[in-house]
């Protein structure tokens, strides 16, 4: 589904990622573990085209996507849930979902608005609330729902449990398992091995921009 090989990336003169190679097969939940600053977010951003890779290859369903624009990559069916959520705070919940909406595709699970609201019942009570007036947990749910509205085949999830109350973390784990059941491939960046242990099929560990041998 998603294959990365020999990926180098960074910001300006500072190289952050060194020769990353990883793979997520169809329907898998794959964890990318590492502490703060290890390069997890940068890996996801480089796959998404938000940080242009210096070298290396990224393939999505066999198609080279490195060097493509983020919107092209998203339209191929790869969703991205950023670490800091990046909710459009001036827009309502319903409008946030509308921004993420893309046409349904035949070979991926479809997420109608009703479907999304069933997955995140909390959101259905606040469709007209502006994104800026939500709690962190609610924003995290909206952020995932917004990406799912694009009916992706695979998603990159950046630290979905970060800074959330234990109860909400519980919910997040449930959501990820739900995504797996629906057949969405997930690449999950996390600091918490306890969390990934519960939801992931297998994992990679990043340290200082390099993958540790498995």
């Amino acid at each position: 589904m998603l294959e990365v090989s020999g990926l180098n990336a960074g910001y300006g003169r500072a190289q952050v990622l060194f020769d990353i190679a990883l793979e997520a097969r169809r329907g898998e939940v794959v964890a990318l573990l590492g502490r703060n600053g290890a390069g997890k977010s940068t890996t996801l951003k480089a796959i998404m085209g938000l940080v242009p890779p210096l070298s290396g290859e990224v393939r999505f369903e066999g198609t080279r996507i490195d060097g493509r624009e983020p919107h092209e990559i998203a339209r191929l069916g790869l969703g991205y849930v950023p670490e800091d959520r990046r909710i459009f705070t001036d827009l309502t919940v319903a409008e946030n979902l509308a921004v993420g909406r893309q046409p349904a595709r035949a070979d991926a699970p479809q997420w109608s608005t009703e479907h999304l609201l069933a997955l995140f019942p909390a959101l259905s009570r606040m469709l007209d609330r502006s994104g800026g007036r939500m709690s962190g947990g609610e924003q995290q749910m909206l952020c995932i729902a917004r990406t799912l509205a694009g009916n992706p085949k695979a998603i990159l999830l950046d630290e979905p449990s970060e800074g959330l109350a234990p109860l909400v973390v519980e919910q997040m784990a449930g959501v990820i398992l739900e995504l797996k059941r629906a057949g969405v491939t997930v690449l999950l960046a996390e600091q918490s091995a306890r969390f990934t242990g519960r939801v992931a099929d297998r994992g990679y560990t990043l340290e200082k921009g390099e993958l540790l041998p498995a």
Binding site: P70, R86, V99, G100, Q102
Partner: peptide, 19 residues
């Protein structure tokens, strides 16, 4: 709605598939 979203965070709008 896309215009208002882009006013706040155009990169995120792109990552959601908007040209």
């Amino acid at each position: 709605i896309l215009v208002r979203a882009a006013t706040q965070d155009r990169e995120m709008v792109g990552a959601l598939g908007v040209n």
